[in-house]
């Protein structure tokens, strides 16, 4: 069967050892949460997933030409914003009510930006036959979701390791947020000068 290579591509688009933008975004998104805060982190992740899946589907269907550099810059802006926010809040979890309002909308909006970036990388090679096109898109989107869940699992494992070494959850989230912010600023400088 041929289609699963697209799932693999989707997964390694997130877990790409050469390009960390999507990976760091997901890490920063869930950094302040413990696994038990499932409602909050799963809500944010779902909103992000809905955003990028819808955006990717629209872009695959409509193929609207978008300025590549602007899309890349927008992805980096979402990364800088999300990790800076973790640092700004010193690794604390925002009140639960706010997650149900503005923050879910922001996660979905950021998902749209990332979805446009996924589509930009994949769309040129998708087949023109509608059935094959949507099957390829579906497998790719599924792969992206698996990649995201792998990042979340990695963050929670790191968190457990930090906790075993007597790092407080707040310190762990702050350190991870700062790490993501440092890298994202480096990536943004690469993008700016590139």
């Amino acid at each position: 069967m041929t289609v699963p290579p697209f799932a693999e591509l989707g997964m390694f688009h997130i877990l790409d050892p050469q390009a960390w933008d999507h990976l760091l975004f997901v890490a920063a998104l869930v950094a302040p949460f413990a696994p038990k805060d499932a409602k909050a982190w799963f809500g944010a992740l779902t909103a992000f997933a809905v955003g990028h899946t819808a955006a990717m589907a629209s872009q695959v269907a409509l193929q609207i030409p978008l300025p590549e550099r602007a899309v890349e810059g927008a992805v980096l802006a979402t990364l800088v914003f999300t990790s800076a926010r973790v640092v700004w809040l010193k690794g604390t979890v925002p009140p639960a009510r706010s997650w149900l309002r503005a923050e879910l909308a922001v996660a979905a909006l950021f998902g749209v930006v990332h979805g446009l970036a996924f589509a930009k990388d994949l769309a040129p090679l998708l087949p023109s036959d509608r059935g094959a096109l949507w099957a390829s898109w579906g497998w790719f989107a599924l792969g992206v979701e698996v990649g995201q869940l792998a990042v979340v699992a990695g963050v929670f494992l790191l968190r457990a390791g930090a906790s075993a070494r007597r790092f407080s959850p707040k310190d762990f989230a702050l350190a991870l947020g700062a790490l993501c912010l440092g890298i994202s600023l480096h990536l943004a400088s690469q993008w700016y000068t590139g």
Partner: peptide, 19 residues
């Protein structure tokens, strides 16, 4: 981890595919 980011880039997601 922090030192390793020097080698990464933001936007270059190589997809080695032909359809």
């Amino acid at each position: 981890l922090f030192s390793s980011f020097i080698w990464c880039s933001a936007s270059d997601h190589p997809i080695h595919l032909a359809s």
